[in-house]
Design a binder for these strands. Structure first.
Length: 417
RNA sequence: GUGGCUGUAGCUCAGUUGGUUAGAGCAUUGGUUUGUGGUACCAAGGGUCGUCGGUUCAAAUCCGAUCAGCCACCCCA
């Protein structure tokens, strides 16, 4: 109730965490550029139909997890994921003239779910979309990029790549019928949740965590066996390409995606280190999406990764910068010291100000921020036009004239920062 | 939306069968050092015990509600 705490499921990213997020996003941005993806930034809210029409009217996200509000007579929704907005932008700007299109995005997403480990109501994703290529080459490239990204983050040892094919529409319809048939005879043994899923989204029963469900599903027909020849060939080709890149995915015939727009390739990078929220990066192919939204038939494939989940796995080893601390003693020295600090910063050094207190106090604070040097300017120094530069690692002090200060400091301390 | 566990200082946590002024460590601030950091020692500040209500002579402690957090289901990044 207290308005002094953040809304449930939202968090303040204090500098330490914000820094970690930025490290992850910066790495993503750098890497994605190397693969030829340009950034796209779509609004964080859209007309509600953008999501309800693309994600599937029966998906959980649409039925119960969207933050929807009315403004004037328009129904608007905070984006629960990134692909729908990208697809909308693709159509509004006629980007089918620019195929193949490779874009990346990052930013906050919103889902009204009960928060738990690795799950927030406002969370952040980075993701990519590759539109206009129906060859498995696109799938392979996008998955390889994902693996590369996780590798550079140093989390690959805790993560495994799972792969499945949902087949094309024909294969999926045939399988769905066979699955429902199999389950219908055993309906009474299914959990309440799964009996509900039987009507709307039977494939979801495949990855149920209920033990009774698992037993029933264990004997169910496999999606893989219902793939028609083209779908089968597509999957085989993808596996060959991934192998060529040194990737050996675990084929998981029970891997299902929640959103209706997926077909053929579905993949997840999962971990056991995050409790129940094992999916760290996931995606798939969505060949029918653009057309379904009213655009020209355009194949597409993409993935998204949860920044918070990556942050939980990623150990930030990048060293914090070591500042030089400028310590002016007295009002006159303050003016001179303030100006010197600016000179040093313009020269490219990371400079902190030792604002107030005794010299002892300020050096203590400088030590705590892991400073590499203190530049002390008091009455004596002012009179002589020299600053006392104290090296905080070895305690040595040298006088350096104000005139030379920036140049000398760069020479002495740039490497220590 | 459902279930389990938990809310005491900025952080991590003690607090006996209900009983005076609710404690510790870390952190912060000050001092030993009025121009010299790390170590050490001394001291100080900081709490309507999540909130509201109830039981009681007396509640951090027992009860109820509520809010929040964590974990799980569901779902997903």
């Amino acid at each position: 109730m207290s308005s002094l705490q953040p809304v449930r499921g939202t968090v303040d990213l204090l500098p330490e965490d914000a820094r970690k997020h930025r490290t992850i996003e910066a790495l993503f941005a750098r890497l994605v550029e190397r693969y030829g993806f340009g950034e796209i930034a779509t609004p964080i809210f859209e007309f509600t139909e953008v999501f309800s029409r693309t994600l599937g009217e029966t998906s959980d996200i649409v039925t119960k997890e969207m933050y929807t509000f009315t403004s004037g007579d328009e129904s608007l929704t905070l984006r629960p994921e990134g692909t729908a907005g990208v697809a909308r932008a693709f159509i509004t700007h006629g980007l089918h003239h620019a195929l193949p299109l490779k874009v990346s995005y990052r930013g906050p997403m919103f889902r009204h779910e009960r928060p738990q480990k690795g799950r927030l109501r406002q969370f952040h994703q980075v993701g990519v979309e590759l539109l206009g290529v129906d060859s498995p080459l696109a799938d392979a490239e996008v998955i390889t990029l994902a693996a590369h990204f996780l590798d550079e983050l140093g989390v690959t040892d805790t993560v495994t790549l799972e792969l499945n094919s949902l087949g094309d529409a024909e294969s999926r319809a045939a399988y769905r019928a066979a699955l429902v048939d199999h389950l219908a005879g055993r309906g009474n043994g299914l959990s309440d949740d799964s009996r509900r899923r039987l009507a709307g989204n039977p494939l979801r029963i495949l990855d149920s965590k209920d033990e009774g469900d698992r037993a029933i599903v264990a004997t169910a027909p496999l999606l893989t066996d219902f793939l028609n020849a083209p779908s089968r060939a597509f999957l085989d080709r993808l596996c060959t390409l991934l192998a060529a890149a040194g990737l050996s995915p675990v084929l998981n015939p029970r891997l299902v995606r929640g959103l209706d727009y997926y077909c053929h390739t579905a993949f997840e990078f999962t971990t056991t280190a995050l409790g129940a929220q094992g999916t760290v990066l996931a995606g798939g192919r969505y060949d029918g999406l653009i057309q379904q939204m009213g655009g020209p038939a355009t194949p597409g494939i993409g993935w998204a990764a949860g920044v918070e989940r990556l942050a939980l796995l990623h150990e930030d080893r990048t060293a914090l910068p070591r500042p030089v601390v400028l310590v002016p003693l007295g009002e006159a020295a303050e003016s001179a010291g303030f100006a010197l600090a600016q000179d040093l910063r313009k020269a490219g050094l990371h400079v902190e100000m030792g604002y107030a207190g005794t010299l002892s106090r300020r050096l203590k604070r400088a030590h705590k921020m892991n400073a590499c040097a203190a530049v002390i300017v008091g009455e004596n120094e002012l009179a002589q036009g020299k600053a006392v530069v104290r090296d905080l690692d070895d305690g040595t002090q040298t006088d350096i004239s104000f005139f030379d200060l920036a140049g000398q400091m760069i020479r002495l301390y740039r490497d220590k920062q």
